[in-house]
């Protein structure tokens, strides 16, 4: 993606439909968007998807948005670890479990 502003609601939903356990968006620092408000729009869309997930009983924590600059490699590692930890604690998504069951009936 050229900018988080290009990420739409449906992209995030489709990732969950595909059975992922978590999604995180990493955008530029707020105020530093090359397209001015791309990352702010992304955050609003993330909020909408979080609401959708909650409304159907899925954990909204499976979706997160972070902001950091391209130079912050160590911060990116921290975020990746943090997110992995969070998702591990939540366990596999209900969608993924059902999909697996469907594909490999016992």
């Amino acid at each position: 993606m050229p900018c988080t502003g290009k990420v739409d609601v449906i992209h995030m939903l489709r990732a969950f439909e595909a059975g992922v356990d978590g999604v995180y968006l990493v955008g530029c620092e707020e105020g530093n968007c090359h397209f001015l408000v791309g990352n702010l729009r992304a955050r609003k869309r993330v909020e909408r998807v979080k609401k959708i997930l909650s409304s159907i009983g899925l954990e909204s924590e499976r979706l997160q948005m972070y902001n950091l600059s391209a130079g912050e490699g160590t911060r990116f590692v921290e975020i990746a670890k943090e997110m992995t930890e969070k998702i591990k604690n939540l366990g596999p998504s209900a969608i993924k479990l059902k999909k697996e069951k469907l594909e490999n009936p016992a």
Binding site: I10, L13, E17, I56, G57, I95, K99, K101
Partner: peptide
Amino acid sequence: QKEVEILSSTIRLAREKEDNP
């Protein structure tokens, strides 16, 4: 069209979760 996609995806997720695709 966008809302059709979002609603459909949401319905599929909800039904998948209930094991009732």
